[in-house]
Write a protein that binds this DNA or RNA. Structure first.
Lengths: 133, 133
DNA sequence: TAAAGTAGGTACTTAAAAGTAACCATATAA
DNA sequence: TTATATGGTTACTTTTAAGTACCTACTTTA
């Protein structure tokens, strides 16, 4: 689960709030949530280290604001590494940190599941093929 | 990545929108996202089938509205099964569907990662222990 | 007679997240 | 001389999601 704005009614039940906030699974899933996040990780994983501008161009449609937010969040979570070179113009390179790489097997698992379900659904919706032959 | 409201600027670039919406990993992650979702699955997974009222009591702090929304979404995604008995009062039981159970290894993987990172962080913040002895 | 439990539905409000646009300093290229 | 690129930041607006409260219909219980 993910913790939204704790409403007043819940804010009083600290036990419940803690139970949700302390869930370690939730903490990790919350990192991946939100638009663009897995997309950014995907680009870094498959394309290798990228500079800010390159990322912005490859993650089509993202705004600089959100890209910055996501990168800061991922950096804080140690999923992404930020290399800043104070040249002019400045050169900032983002790459997958060790923890980011550790997510790979799990993301692959999600991918396999997703593709399998997709196939199963497609097959289930195609009894016409058998009937037509 | 998750698809937010497609802004006008992006709406024209259908290729980009498709690239994001069609991502199967994203489709699955989006199901788990949002407050309470993994919590609901967790309760069904560990406690077994539960009725609406029971769920609402166990998922502390959730509102009936959101619980209903989440269950409908999970049912549509075939992660959860809904059994409706037209008794009086009506009896509605929710249980984990096969696809919901298939998520277990992946969620366990997230849990292991999360706990390990938590431990690593705790150790990294405790060099005082060594120094004190 | 009124309350409580069943499983929600609906309307309204609020808060968070995301989007847009303008701006910063600096240097190079046209 | 103006535009472009670098890597952002900031203010403002819009969209979406979530929360709150009240309602249904029927039965059993106090």
């Amino acid at each position: 689960m993910t913790n939204p704005a704790p409403p007043a009614a819940v804010r009083r039940e600290d036990a419940a709030v803690d139970a949700r906030s302390a869930c370690p699974v939730d903490a990790v899933l919350r990192l991946l949530m939100g638009p663009w996040t897995t997309y950014i990780l995907y680009v870094l994983r498959t394309q290798g280290p990228r500079r800010f501008g390159e990322l912005k161009r490859e993650v089509t449609g993202i705004s600089a604001k959100v890209l910055t937010e996501r990168l800061r969040m991922l950096e804080e979570a140690q999923l992404v590494r930020r290399d800043y070179q104070a040249t002019i113009p400045p050169q900032v390179t983002y790459s997958l940190a060790p923890r980011g790489a550790e997510l790979t097997p799990m993301l692959d698992m999600v991918k396999d599941l997703a593709l399998r379900w997709q196939t199963e659904d497609a097959v289930a919706l195609q009894p016409a093929r058998q009937a037509a032959e």
